[in-house]
Design a protein around this nucleic acid. Structure first.
Length: 307
DNA sequence: GGAGACT
DNA sequence: AGTCTCCAACGCGCT
DNA sequence: AGCGCG
């Protein structure tokens, strides 16, 4: 009931390795640790240097978990001082495996990176379908395509991933030029433009009562100290689904946000090279403030296709 | 899952 | 020594 | 000022 997982040069002990975390017949803590060790080469470039918070389920997903921003941690795990205290970073595979031993099923990270905390290098738009089923997810997919179009109009790149929960996240890599609040303002403007394309279906109204069954185009994952689920993170749901970056081609084949699970085997990451496509949020904001951007999409070489 | 407080 | 409790936080737009 | 919301 106790094993050691090799992660790079380090060995990490996994206690109660055979404990099921995803229901009686679901994946065990060992499965979780093995997954994070296996996916580390793809995941680490996307989480490295970011303050991380752990969503932990020591008694499995059928018991309430908790979010931990300042967990006790071994000294070899790097930390950084942030506006909300000293937070961990996951710089190496062993850190991910240690998180698994802590029953940290899901990792959430900041949108800015050390040493540029407060200047996000990415923006996230969160799309959650209103109902259940494939139709609901399809409308979510449509919304993701619209987000991509609006981002393109503003000269911004777009990458998409399942959240492993209900919906999709669209990531847009940014040059770290402006602060959290400005990025949120940009995200809100993008969301408003998306919603304006199908006002009967989509909205940016925060209050549920004001939504009238429309899908919320969520821009609130941007802002100071805001967290978003890390790419390749496992979710606390039956079947151990994962947040999986996908190519835009793949997106149309998906039937749900949970199509990928802890069994995921990937050799190449659709988000690889994303940072090379980072664009200027300052320019996007100035286009918006001048009321442009829907008119003259500027020429570009490639778009957020993955690579 | 682990630390600190309380019994 | 057993048991309990805690483990986030931020701003927005409404009321 | 307080609350719902993510």
């Amino acid at each position: 009931m106790r094993t050691t997982v090799r992660a790079g040069r380090r060995k990490v002990e996994v206690k109660h390795a055979e404990k099921p975390l995803f229901g009686p017949d679901g994946a065990t803590k060992a499965d979780l640790a093995d997954y994070y060790a296996r996916i580390a080469p793809l995941m680490l470039p996307l989480v490295r240097d970011r303050p991380v918070a752990l969503e932990r389920f020591p008694d499995g997903i059928d018991d309430p978990g908790f979010l931990s921003q300042h967990p006790p941690h071994p000294k070899w795990i790097r930390t950084v001082w942030t506006s909300s205290g000293r937070m961990m970073e996951c710089q190496e595979a062993a850190a991910l495996v240690w998180c698994a031993d802590q029953a940290a099923i899901t990792l959430h990270t900041w949108s800015s990176r050390t040493p540029r905390l407060g200047l996000p290098d990415r923006m996230v738009l969160d799309l959650d379908p209103v109902g259940e089923g494939e139709d609901a997810f399809e409308s979510c997919r449509d919304a993701a395509w619209s987000v991509r179009e609006v981002l393109t109009e503003l000269g911004l790149a777009a990458y998409v991933m399942t959240t492993g929960s209900r919906g999709l996240h669209v990531h847009s890599p940014l040059r770290p030029e402006v602060g959290d609040l400005e990025v949120r303002r940009l995200a809100k403007a993008v969301a408003d433009r998306v919603a304006a394309r199908a006002p009967e279906e989509w909205t940016t109204r925060v209050r549920k009562a004001a939504r009238h069954g429309r899908m919320f185009v969520d821009y609130l994952r941007n802002g100071p100290a805001q967290l978003a689920v890390a790419p390749y993170s496992v979710r606390a749901r039956p079947g151990a689904p994962v947040a999986a970056p996908v190519t835009w081609e793949e997106l149309d084949q998906l039937t749900s946000s949970r199509d990928f699970t802890i069994d995921l085997e990937r050799q190449e990451c659709p988000f690889a090279g994303m940072r090379r496509h980072a664009r200027s949020p300052r320019r996007a904001l100035s286009l918006l403030d001048r009321g442009e951007g829907g008119v003259v999409p500027r020429p570009r070489t490639s778009r957020g296709e993955g690579e």
